[in-house]
Design a protein around this nucleic acid. Structure first.
Length: 498
DNA sequence: CGCGTTTGACCTGCGC
DNA sequence: GCGCAGGTCAAACGCG
């Protein structure tokens, strides 16, 4: 006997109707534009429709018959009625005709329901847009108000004479504003060199030197000045990494050139100064010095952000400086004790060790210190070249992945949340609420699955790619990088400090 | 010869 | 104003 070659293949008929339920506007719009056009990157339900016209072909796609919930969903929509109408018959036509009236009603009911639902969603979307606009306006207004207050306070405290503080090579910025994450500019409107930090890898960001421009507080929109001042502060922020290592220098995937060495007071070990040589004019510098108390501890301090693309290994550390700086900035939001719970943030970032990371704004430059020498479990950092010794990179990667949340989203959420407070609430009261928000946010960050996932991903990527036998090679990245530069000598990633 | 390191001189900020 | 300390510059030097 012949196999039932004439038997229709029912499944393809069932896929078709879903369009009405889910993406009415989508596919309908596509059809209006061009009936023949296939919709790329979307499920092409019309493909089955076309096939069904020429005879139903068995498929192995989602639409094929089987226990797929997707298929079940289609069936449950009841809209397969349209399919039968379009296919015009075969064996199922009779059955369809029998049930057509009931299905029609049910289908119309569902379409009507979906239309209502769509309208409701649209109106809600519109309402949310308006709320967002309102929040944005309030946010800008508060920033404006904050700047005004700070200017007034600054004038009161310093008599307007002392717009200074330490800012790189002798340029002076109000320390108070630095602590607030803001900087007061010299009399210049040139803020062109200001820009996003490592997150966007701006070219021409090499403004660490005496020509460093600080955004002017006046004569520009407050939100812009805040952003630019923030970036200026971040640029001067430092990330210090303490690691127990016998190696002369920590490996971070970058190429460094030593440009100086000094005997620092109180430390018999000289301090070496390096600058990044991966790109001309890269502003990133680092200092390497052995700890006076424990010569086995290497202290590496990073400053600035790279203005060039980085290999992943180097990106991790660069991300640390950038992201930790943002965290530090977030941690220096105004509060009753002048410093928002910086160490809380540090503990939050690395909850496994309360002493692993500290944030200090009391130093000439706000500094984040990652102490990798105080592992609660000695096995955790067994050898200088072990994957665990690459924790700064892990930390950096995790922070990088989370940097927008930590540096931008949080602060925006803080501000926007503050905006929700009653307008008559005093500034100090709002500030208290904001501080509490910071605490809550930091606690949330500790348990945030995204952060955990980012950290886990970073650990996986670092440890998975690390090569314990090669001090200068993290995941083979450096080797590739060296080849691309065509000169291994350039990779001066290890220099004796002593 | 090119590149990186060394090292003394120089610059700048800060405290007294 | 002076001295100190941190940071940078640049000529001299070494290495491959």
């Amino acid at each position: 006997m012949d196999m039932d070659s004439s038997a229709p293949s029912p499944p393809t008929c069932i896929n078709f109707p879903l369009n009405l339920t889910c993406t009415n506007h989508h596919d309908h719009h596509a059809l209006m534009i061009d009936h023949r056009r296939k919709i790329i990157d979307e499920m092409d339900f019309f493909a089955d429709k076309k096939e069904s016209r020429g005879g139903c072909q068995p498929t192995s796609d989602v639409g094929a018959d089987g226990p797929s919930s997707f298929l079940d969903f289609n069936v449950n929509t009841g809209l397969h009625l349209l399919t039968s109408a379009n296919t015009g018959g075969d064996q199922s036509a009779a059955d369809d005709r029998i049930s057509s009236n009931a299905n029609n009603k049910r289908g119309k009911t569902e379409v009507g329901f979906l239309k209502t639902e769509l309208q409701r969603m649209n109106s809600e979307n519109q309402r949310l847009k308006e709320m967002l606009n309102q929040a944005t306006n309030d946010y800008k207004g508060l920033q404006r108000h904050l700047l005004t207050l700070m200017q007034e306070q600054h004038s009161d405290n310093n008599g307007g004479q002392e717009r200074r503080g330490c800012n790189g090579n002798g340029k002076v910025v109000s320390r108070q504003f630095m602590d607030l994450g803001l900087a007061v500019a010299p009399d210049t409107d040139d803020v062109s060199s200001e820009g996003p930090m490592a997150d966007k890898e701006i070219p021409g960001g090499e403004d660490l030197g005496p020509d460093n421009k600080i955004p002017k507080l006046n004569n520009q929109s407050p939100d812009t000045s805040v952003d630019q001042a923030t970036e200026a502060t971040i640029r001067k922020a430092r990330v210090s990494v303490r690691a127990r290592s016998e190696a002369p220098m920590m490996t971070d995937g970058c190429q460094w050139r030593k440009y100086g060495q000094k005997m620092a007071k109180g430390n018999p070990c000289p301090r070496a100064y390096y600058r990044c040589t991966m790109a001309a004019g890269c502003p990133v510098r680092k200092q390497v010095q052995r700890c006076a108390d424990d010569r086995s501890v290497l202290i590496t301090t990073y400053e600035g952000n790279h203005n060039h693309p980085l290999p992943p290994a180097a990106m991790a550390m660069a991300s640390t400086t950038s992201s930790a700086s943002r965290m530090l900035l977030l941690g220096s939001m105004p509060s009753a004790d002048g410093l928002m719970n910086s160490n809380l943030l540090a503990r939050t970032l690395l909850p496994c060790s309360s002493s692993m990371a500290t944030i200090s704004a009391s130093a000439p430059f706000p500094t984040v210190t990652l102490d990798l020498t105080q592992s609660p479990n000695p096995l955790q950092f067994p050898k200088p070249n072990s994957p665990a010794a690459l924790l700064p990179q892990i930390f950096g990667q995790a922070l990088h992945n989370h940097s927008k949340f930590s540096g931008l989203q949080i602060s925006q959420e803080i501000d926007q949340t503050t905006q929700q407070l009653p307008p008559l609430m005093s500034t100090s009261m709002k500030q208290g609420v904001q501080n509490q928000f910071n605490v809550d946010t930091a606690n949330t960050l500790a348990t945030d699955p995204n952060f955990t996932a980012a950290l886990a991903a970073a650990i996986t990527s670092i440890m998975g790619g690390s090569c314990p036998n090669n001090n200068n090679n993290i995941g083979g990245v450096n080797t590739r990088n060296n080849n691309s530069h065509g000169n291994n000598k350039l990779n001066s990633s290890s220099y004796p400090v002593n």
